[in-house]
Simulated scan of single mutants.
Amino acid sequence: MKISIGLDAKQIKDNVKALSVLLADEHILYTKTRNAHWNVEGADFHAMHVFFESQYDELEEIIDEVAERIRQLGQMAPGSLKDFVQLTRLSERKLSKNDSQSFIKALLEDQESVISYIREVVAKMDDSKDFGTEDFLVGLLEKHEKMAWMLRAHL
């Protein structure tokens, strides 16, 4: 059903495209954080296992919120791994070690990439009048900044 919320079709299309890239990035970051949770080794295993779990739990909520924002704009959210791999800006790389510091550095780099992307999207939204999506993204920005801070605090 077509929605009538005061945004033109181009504004919705542009914002959904940006949200779809963000959804893919969130999903890839979630998977990489799960990998850290499963595979971290070292004397700090238990503490890091629990820490990474708290991070992927937060990302799981974010993923759902981003997909729901896309649906609120009347569009279908991408939902396949193929879609996510095609849309993401993040890359996968094999770490040389499974220690907490290696995982933390890699995840922090991705968190900072997501933060920068959200800032870029919000900066471009000034003329769109999609205040709901803009506010939503600012809230996500704050969540990612906190997650990045938590990672940084372990370095």
Rank of each mutant, 00 (worst) to 15 (best):
K2M: 15
I3V: 14
I3D: 03
I5W: 01
I5H: 00
I5Q: 13
L7N: 03
Q11Y: 03
Q11F: 12
K13N: 04
V16T: 14
L19A: 06
L22F: 00
L22T: 10
D25N: 12
H27I: 06
H27C: 04
Y30S: 01
Y30P: 00
T33V: 09
N35K: 10
N35C: 05
H37S: 11
V40M: 02
G42M: 10
G42D: 06
A43N: 04
A47R: 08
M48S: 06
H49V: 06
V50S: 02
Q55M: 10
Y56R: 05
E58S: 09
E58D: 09
E61V: 07
I62R: 03
E68Y: 02
E68V: 04
I70Y: 01
M76N: 04
P78M: 11
P78F: 09
G79F: 09
S80F: 01
S80R: 12
D83H: 12
F84V: 08
V85P: 02
Q86M: 12
T88I: 14
L90C: 13
L90G: 08
S91N: 11
L95I: 14
S96Y: 10
K97A: 15
S102N: 15
K105H: 12
K105Y: 07
A106L: 11
L108E: 13
D110Q: 14
V114F: 10
R119A: 12
V122Y: 07
V122C: 04
V122T: 15
K129G: 05
D130N: 05
D130G: 06
F131C: 02
T133A: 14
T133Q: 03
F136M: 15
L137Y: 04
G139K: 14
E142M: 10
K146G: 14
M147V: 12
M147T: 11
M147F: 01
M147C: 08
W149F: 15
W149M: 13
A153Q: 15
A153W: 03
